[in-house]
Each structure stands twice: as C-alpha cells, then as structure tokens.
Computed example of a mutant assay.
Amino acid sequence: MGFQQYKEDFVEYLQIEKNASPYTVTFYQDDLDSFFLFLKSEGIKDLKEVNYVVIRIFLTKLYDKKLSRRSVSRKISSLRTFFRMLERNEVVESNPFVSVSLPKKDNPIPEFLYAEELEKLFTVSDLTTPLGQRNQALLELLYGTGMRVSECTNLKLHSLDFSIGTVLVRGKGNKERYIPFGSYAQEALERYMNDGREKLLKKGNGSKDHLFLNARGTELTPRGIRLILNEMVKNSSLTVHVHPHKLRHTFATHLLNEGADLRSVQELLGHENLSSTQIYTHVTKDHLRKIYLNSHPRA
C-alpha cells in the first residue's frame, strides 16, 4: 500500500472515529505530507523502516527550518496519532513516536487589547452601509463571546437566540456550547440581519443560512475576517496588530480582570482542559499587581 492510501485511511479515521473538525483534518494532512516528503528524500519507502533514529533526523530538519516548538509539537502529535492507527491495523509492530517527547512549550503571555483601543475599533464602521453593519456585528460578536474565528464563520442564522441572548457554537471536535452575548452585540446583529445582510444576500448565490456574508453575498471565510479586522485597525489609526484570536484573548482577559472565575471562562472559551485557560492568569496577576502598587498605602 502506498503513502497516499495510508493518508486517505488516516483522514477517514480522523473524521469517523476521532470526530475531528475540518481544520484539524487539514492540519494533520499537512503534517503527514511533510513527513512523507521527508521519507522520500531519505529513500525510505516502507513505514516499517521508521524508527527513533529516523524521527530524530526528521526533527532536526524541522528545527533547521526555524519552526516554533508549538509547530513541532503539533507535528509530533499528528504523527503519533497516525502511527497509532497503523499499529492498530497491524501495519507496523509498534508506534515509534511513543518514545518521542514533546518539546517544552513556550508560554508567552497572550496579547490583548485595552478598553481604550477597543473603543476606537467600535467607532470606525459606517453603520449606514451593509458592510459597515456587518463589520460592526462581527466585531461585537467576536469580542462579546470570545469564539474562535472558525466557529464564527460556521455560524448559521438559527445559531442565534435573541430571546435569551445566546449563540450556539460548534467548536473543536464538533462539540457544541452556548455562549451568552450582551445588548451591544444584539443591537449590532439585529441591525445587520434586518438590513445589511439582506442587501448582501441579493448580490450572490451563496448560502442563505450563513450569518456572515462577504461583499459578493457568499459566506465569509476566516481569511476574510482577518482582512476586515486589518482594515478596521487601519481606519482607526491604531498602531497595534489585531487578529481574531487577539479578540478572544481580550474577551478572556477582561472577564478575569472583572472577577469572573476561571472555570466559567474555561466553559465560555470551550477549552477542554483548565490548563489552556490558565495562561490568562498571568495577565490578571500583572493587572492585580498594578492595582496593588497604585492603591496600597504601603506598597
């Protein structure tokens, strides 16, 4: 059996047995493709030949490309899962990636926006135009819920429940969760859905169910959202870089700074493990220290 067939079997395994999201499947396929290219460059035609020495050479080449520890860790995890499938199907006798340890993660403090910076972003959209209404609704929803950009682009009209102010989000592994949103987001969404979205819909033959549409009337993509945010930053004269995940970081940081508990924020973000949410405590500790130093008489 050739590498391509193993790849197809792996994709099927991820989709059916692991219930992996389309984005996870894409990343795993890319990781597998890069590994197969490496094997061909080394003259390795049989996956049974892959051992610890081969893997060390592969990892060395990854580090030579200046890949981050996080990227290398993901590739190791992808290939470990791939060889686990091969071992189960008796293609290989054992999983050679089991003995490979993941590189220690960098734990940079997540970047976030201050309230003053956000206020500038909220004032740049022309709310008399369909695109301006869409951009405002998009910004309000991303900041108001902390959802991932992929979750945002997959939203349908029926995902929103204005009667109780919640949105149903399908996250990683197709896991669903409800996230509440506030009055600012609701006002922006209703304006867009009742006016701007109807006008955009007439421009194309795209999905009539997707919440956010592009200028051609078809569903908005993650890349499209990034371009929109970049344009909004440019129009606001801000000097900071804003990406969708930065709004997610901002959502979590602001909640914790205002007294929300870590478990609640974990649930809102859709993190499977609390450790993923704990990166935000670095920011809040810094915030608390500043308050202490500025407020305590004997600080």
Rank of each mutant, 00 (worst) to 15 (best):
D261Q: 14
L32V: 14
D286L: 00
K65V: 13
F36M: 14
F35N: 11
E258Y: 11
R170V: 08
P297C: 14
S236L: 06
N95G: 04
D161V: 04
L62V: 12
P22Y: 08
G196C: 02
H254Q: 03
S159E: 05
E87M: 04
K199D: 04
M232T: 02
Y63K: 11
E219Y: 08
D286K: 10
L268P: 03
D195M: 09
G217H: 01
S276R: 06
Y178R: 14
E198K: 15
Y52R: 15
L229V: 03
P130V: 01
F212T: 09
K104E: 09
P244L: 01
S73G: 08
Y63R: 11
H158N: 08
L39Q: 13
L168S: 14
N257L: 08
E198T: 09
S276L: 10
K199Y: 07
G165Y: 02
R56V: 11
K175Y: 09
F35Q: 07
D33R: 11
A252G: 12
N230W: 05
F212M: 05
K45T: 13
L139A: 04
L138Y: 02
Y63D: 03
C152S: 13
N257W: 09
I44G: 04
F82M: 13
S150H: 06
L227I: 07
V72L: 00
Q133T: 02
I179D: 06
L160P: 03
E151K: 11
D161G: 00
T221I: 04
A215F: 12
K285W: 02
D46I: 12
K105M: 08
G43A: 01
D126R: 03
E176L: 08
E111L: 05
L37S: 15
T153C: 10
V25K: 09
P96F: 03
S125L: 02
S71K: 00
N230P: 11
V72P: 14
L168M: 12
K199M: 11
F97G: 14
G259W: 05
L142V: 01
T218N: 15
T129A: 00
S71L: 01
K120W: 04
H158D: 11
F35G: 15
P244C: 03
G217V: 00
I228A: 07
P244Q: 02
L211P: 07
F181P: 12
F122H: 05
A260W: 00
N257F: 12
T221N: 06
G132F: 00
V50I: 11
Y178S: 09
L127T: 12
S159K: 10
R197V: 01
F251W: 02
T60E: 14
T253D: 06
A20F: 05
N89K: 14
P244K: 05
P222H: 13
R70K: 15
I109H: 15
K156E: 13
I76R: 06
K199C: 04
E267D: 12
P108Y: 14
Y28H: 07
G165N: 11
F35M: 15
K202D: 04
F112V: 01
F112H: 03
G196W: 00
K7R: 08
G171F: 00
M232H: 05
H254W: 05
T250V: 01
K203D: 04
E119Q: 12
S68P: 10
F251R: 01
F181E: 10
K175D: 01
I291D: 09
L138E: 04
R84M: 03
E116F: 13
V167K: 08
M1G: 10
